[in-house]
Amino acid sequence: MKKIQFFIITKSIGLYLNALSYVNLEEAKNKAYQLFSQPRKGRIKKEKLPKTLQNVTYETFEYQTEKFQTYIWHGTRGDTSDSELAKQSERSEANEEIILLVHGWESNASRWKKLLTHLKPLGKTIIAIDAPAHGLSEGTEFNAPKYAEYINVLTQKYQPKIVIGHSVGGAAISFYLNKYKNPTIEKVILLGAPSDFKILSDNFVKLLSLNDKVKTQLENYYLEKFNIHIDDFSGHQFAKNFTQKAFIAHDTEDKVVLIDEGRKYAKTWKEAIYIETTGLGHSMHDDDLYKKIIDFI
């Protein structure tokens, strides 16, 4: 029943936008982009923080006019409690070995709960970020280039050596590395990451059955907004020039980002370990996989 309702709603929206394109194409494009870039979930409230994000150090950054939230687990060895870690507010200096966690679409920093149990014993400082319009971060618009700018603001201060991205978070990392060529990042871990922005856009157009007029306007808008043609907006093409070591994992049953995207990264990234899993879907939560990630780190 829910699938039928979803089908009716999406096609009705598409029908409206197609009709609008004959009256006001610019408005149709704007509404389509808003739907494409505005997450429907992933927000959290300060008074109802997930347990994973409690008793940590909080730091707020700013990009242009918007603030974005980060969470810091300070590096230590042994059985130091989260509450004790939160008090060590001066431990994360720029020269400390830091791991940066970058979540994906309609999620927030709490998605790393299971991986954190594996990362903390390493004794490294861990920083998780809330994406634009997600978690406690401000804004209403989400896209990989904007996310990459958040990453850039944070890395200028903390200079992480390891970055881990899930889903579009991984795509944002690829866009960031292509634009900023950060030599301090030594290792990259991508989990279920999309490569070709055109595929994401085409899937959205197909979902709503948008006409060619709206599709063309959207693609022109991407070029204007991101200063890159949609056909060139490709993570695996960026990866050809990356010098970092990579660990790339993708699930064969991922229905959100198909397995071919992971295989593209694996073919072009020069120093990459590639693993295919089965049965994990898009979330990629798995203890055995996380142990392999720890070994890679």
Rank of each mutant, 00 (worst) to 15 (best):
M1H: 10
Q5A: 12
I8S: 13
I8L: 14
I9Q: 09
L17T: 11
L20I: 02
V23K: 06
A32N: 13
L35Y: 06
F36D: 00
F36R: 04
R40F: 03
L49V: 14
T52P: 07
Y58G: 01
F61Q: 01
H74L: 01
G78H: 04
T80K: 11
E84D: 04
Q88E: 04
S89R: 05
E97C: 06
W105K: 01
K113V: 06
L119Y: 11
A128C: 02
L136W: 02
E141I: 15
A148H: 09
Y150C: 03
I151W: 00
G165L: 06
V168R: 04
Y176S: 10
N178W: 08
N178K: 15
K181H: 15
K187T: 11
A193K: 07
P194V: 12
F197I: 14
S201G: 06
V205W: 01
L207I: 02
L207E: 15
L208E: 14
S209L: 07
V214G: 00
E219N: 07
Y221W: 13
L223Y: 10
N227V: 10
I228E: 09
I228Q: 14
D231K: 10
S234M: 12
H236C: 11
T243W: 12
Q244F: 15
K245H: 14
F247V: 09
T252G: 00
V257K: 02
V257R: 04
E261V: 08
K264Y: 13
I273G: 10
E276I: 03
G279N: 05
G279W: 04
G279M: 05
L280M: 04
L280E: 00
H282K: 00
S283L: 07
D287R: 05
D288H: 07
K292T: 09
I297Q: 15
